[in-house]
C-alpha cells in the first residue's frame, strides 16, 4: 500500500509494527505510515464514516467507536471516566471548551483529548 502523504510504499504488516506502542491496534480503524507517521482510515465502509469527536457540530450526536491513542495516560483518563465505545455522545457546546453529554452526565473536555475519541455520526 502507498502512503497518502509521502507516497512511501509499504506492506500492511509494516504499518502494524509502527503502531506497536499503541494498545489499540486491534480495534483501530487507522493505518500509520512507517515512514512519516501520517495516519488515515483504512478503506472500508465503516471506518470511512469515523470522525474525531472534535468535528461534531453543536447538537450533533455520535456513537463512540474507538478511543485511538498510543498515550496510555489519555486512554486511562478517558475510560476510567466511563466514556467507552458503544455509548452515544452528544455535543452540547463547542466554545470555549467542548461540552458533551453521555447518558445524564456532562463532560467538559478540550480538543487535545477529544481528538482521540472517534465517533460515527448519528442522524
Amino acid at each position: 500500500m502507498k502512503c497518502k502523504l509521502c507516497g512511501y510504499q509499504f506492506d500492511i504488516k509494516q504499518a502494524v509494527q509502527s503502531c506497536a506502542s499503541c494498545p489499540l491496534t486491534k480495534n483501530c480503524p487507522l493505518v500509520r505510515c512507517p515512514n512519516c507517521n501520517y495516519e488515515w482510515p483504512l478503506d472500508s465502509e465503516e471506518s470511512n464514516k469515523l470522525v474525531p469527536l472534535t468535528s461534531l457540530k453543536k447538537g450533533e450526536k455520535g456513537k463512540i467507536s474507538t478511543i485511538c491513542t498510543s498515550q496510555t495516560e489519555y486512554l486511562k483518563k478517558i475510560i476510567s471516566m466511563g466514556i467507552m465505545p458503544g455509548m452515544t455522545i452528544e455535543m452540547i457546546r463547542r466554545f470555549p471548551t467542548l461540552l458533551c453529554q453521555i447518558g445524564f452526565s456532562q463532560f467538559a473536555l478540550d480538543d487535545e483529548i477529544a481528538k482521540y475519541i472517534l465517533v460515527s455520526r448519528i442522524n
Binding site: 489519555y74 471548551t97 452526565s105 478540550d110 487535545e112 483529548i113
Partner: peptide, 10 residues
Amino acid sequence: PPIFFMEVPP
C-alpha cells in the same frame, strides 16, 4: 501542557 477534562455536575 495540561489537558482539560472534567465532569460537569448539574
